[in-house]
Design a protein around this nucleic acid. Structure first.
Lengths: 215, 215, 215, 215
DNA sequence: AATGAATGAGGATTCATTCAT
DNA sequence: AATGAATGAATCCTCATTCAT
């Protein structure tokens, strides 16, 4: 069987070539951003000639969009783990959940997922013709936002939707910021600690907003 | 009169050329980031030939560093306004101060200052040879960080220095995130509202940390 | 019935693929000339993958030669229609014939036959290695030239062969020119009118040459 | 003085470089047409690096347009020679003039002026986005057309303007055709003889049209 | 009869930078 | 203080063609 795989392998395996290209592109794009990612670099990194890259992807823009999509998908999978909890009080459970999620996010962001670094770089650009890759990131980010909204609604079932949206905006934005801080400061930055702070801050915020509404 | 005009305006003026170049570079770099900023584009935008840019700046890297420095300086000036407050209770005064500062930051970031957009883009990059411009941004960011630490220390004079540092890290990072959210969402994002949320969250956090320490 | 459809239509049909390729190639070559005609463009236009084109044609050169050949064949068929005429006087008949032919050519050239446009483009090129397609056009053009000589010989049976050749050269060349004028000017150019002028000019010319010879 | 020129020459002479580029481009474009003219070829032929060509011309299209413009200018200068004639009878003089002009055109076209070969190639193309070079040729051709109209009006002062226009269209188109015939056939084609035929044919045509009008 | 995948060469154009003036 | 001209290296991307299946 091994022999067979070896024999069949070389020459024309589209699926695998595509993957190799994406792997290389992720690396390069993570290192140097959109403009800094040159097809030649990707080609050198993946071993396929530049022209082959164009067989698999229409152009650089589409390649990078695919990079973001794949990287986000992987991150989301890693993020979506079962969340066993046996606390009786639902409020307590929700709080624990929030803290658990924060810890999980902190951990996953410590690996500096490429879609996020790349995506934020793209998000900060304002070029005349919006690259597909940027659109892809914004799309992907909306998915994350929705998940977060759901989690907050669960944390505070009695909060009105507008407030939920506001808090989830805040929560996501701050998470971006913490990620960047970690990118800048490296491991000097205690990402788990900061995310714990963040989780508590959010819990406080939700409480405050609920009290406001009650009053 | 003709003589006067000649004297006043046309005398090839280094200072003004430099300014024109920086103005153009700010625009372009804000639109397209570090790699996307080409000397030719800057030249076209400011009307001076590319070679003239090299008379004023050693190379592209130095030009962009200058852009960041100048933009940050302007922002800091705008930020550092007198902060009259006549409240008797220092705790109340500190709280007001925090909220006022948050409002001021929110307002200033709404104009999407170029140093911050550019700087964050640079911060997210990880290229082999660190550009001067990135270093400049990190420097400049440290200044902002110090100011913030001072403000938080004032808000909570009894907090231990490590906690102050941690909170100020969190505060600055989240502010970056909010800025990015505004960059992405445009004016749909209620920056003042989010910064108010942020200020309250920080106040809560400081209180929480203080109680912890007391206990 | 299903079986019938399958049998009638889908049986991968070489003849039809060839035709589709040629159809696409005619279009593209008509638009962009020899160098501008890329296999990829033809492939996109005909729906077959580029590699399939190489199954039917040795290389690009041969493909374009085939285009010219087929287009000229079709044109010649359309040109060679019965030419009923019952005039008694052979001279009168010949004149009518000449005018009729001119009208027919004018009409056929108004549809801008691709072989001619493409062929003239190729004829104007002077590249080191003569493409097969050019040779094909020159061959095809010789056929047209011979037909024209025959017609002129009929118009003026007493004209010496050298003069016939000269006039037919002139006639063909001018026809090319009129075609080009129509290509340039579109339907603003009254091709039938110009060809009528041309026919009369030829008749006059033939007469003049005959008189010369007589004198 | 000679020494001074020599000393000043080398390094950075924009005017001369531009001329060298145009010279090379004329050669190449004459050989291979629009698409066949590559910047690299031009660069190799003129000795300047490809990037220098872009200092002098915005892009390939503009370069070729410039080639056409210059080549036509030169041709027109060569064409516009004094035309001394002392015949008494104006009709005789006009006829002589026509024949003289035909001879001159024949001779000039024997050198296969580049603007005409290139221009005709471009004229035959029909690409979606019209190249500047094609527009330039059509412009330049209009100038030639106007000159020709004037000459014909002089040859037949009593001919109505519409007829003059028609004849001049015919005359120019046929001239294009004769030029192409010469391009195809090389020196086997007796261009002066054909142009003489053409001139006579035009004179006959003008006469015929005048008689028609009289009748 | 056809095609998915690959590929080296070359396409136009732009880059940051330099240098003589 | 400024600039016209030049340049080698790099950019993205397309080309004609091949080959295993």
């Amino acid at each position: 069987m091994v022999g067979e795989r070896g024999a069949r392998k070389r020459r024309a395996n589209g699926e695998e070539s595509r993957r190799r290209i994406l792997d290389a592109a992720v690396e390069v794009a993570g290192e140097r951003g959109y403009e800094g990612t040159t097809i030649n670099l990707v080609s050198a990194r993946c071993g396929l000639p530049a022209s082959s890259i164009y067989w698999h992807f229409k152009d650089k823009d589409e390649l990078i969009a695919a990079v973001i999509e794949r990287s986000f998908g992987a991150w989301l999978d890693a993020m979506t783990l079962p969340d066993a909890d046996d606390a009786a009080d639902p409020a307590v459970r929700a709080r624990r959940r929030a803290l658990g999620m924060a810890a999980r996010v902190a951990k996953s962001l410590s690996d500096s997922p490429d879609f996020l670094r790349l995506g934020l770089m793209l998000a900060l650009e304002r070029r005349p013709e919006e690259p597909t890759a940027r659109t892809m990131f914004l799309q992907v980010r909306k998915v994350a936002q929705d998940r977060l909204s759901a989690a907050i609604a669960e944390l505070a079932p009695d909060l009105d939707p507008a407030a939920v949206r506001r808090v989830s905006h805040y929560a996501l934005a701050a998470a971006d910021g913490l990620f960047i801080a970690h990118e800048i400061g490296g491991d000097d930055v205690d990402l788990p600690g900061l995310f714990e702070l963040h989780a508590h801050a959010l819990i406080d915020t939700v409480d405050r907003l609920r009290d406001h509404a009650d009053a």
